[in-house]
């Protein structure tokens, strides 16, 4: 049977089930992404502020925020007077 180019994923979908853990990780990423982008819509935020707003551990906020910067949703803002912590804002 000829498999149509651009739709070959369907062929693998018939043979292979996506593990539940992968689906759960995607849901978790989407939930965190939405939370972060919503928080940043209001105003620029520091990692500390996002940690409190999202009720997440700081290392996780750093990891997901840096990922969102890499994916082009967020950008780095100003650094504070002590040159220690940056603010982060939505990429327009």
């Amino acid at each position: 049977m000829e498999i149509e180019k651009g739709k070959t994923f369907k062929c693998l979908r018939d043979k292979r089930e996506v593990p539940q853990v992968v689906k759960d990780q995607l849901k978790e990423f989407n939930r965190i992404k939405k939370g972060m982008l919503d928080a940043l819509k209001e105003t620029d935020q520091t990692i500390d502020q996002l940690t409190q707003k999202l009720n997440m551990p700081k290392p996780e906020v750093v990891y997901y925020l840096m990922s969102l910067i890499k994916y082009g949703f967020v950008q780095t803002g100003e650094v504070d007077d002590m040159d220690e912590y940056f603010t982060y804002k939505l990429k327009k």
Partner: peptide
């Protein structure tokens, strides 16, 4: 990364050269 792919086909739909091949 097939171990983490959800087989949604989004990559294949946007690929301008049809180089993605799940077969």
């Amino acid at each position: 990364d097939i171990d983490n792919c959800i087989l949604c086909g989004a990559c294949e739909k946007v690929c301008p050269t049809n180089c993605i091949d799940f077969t």
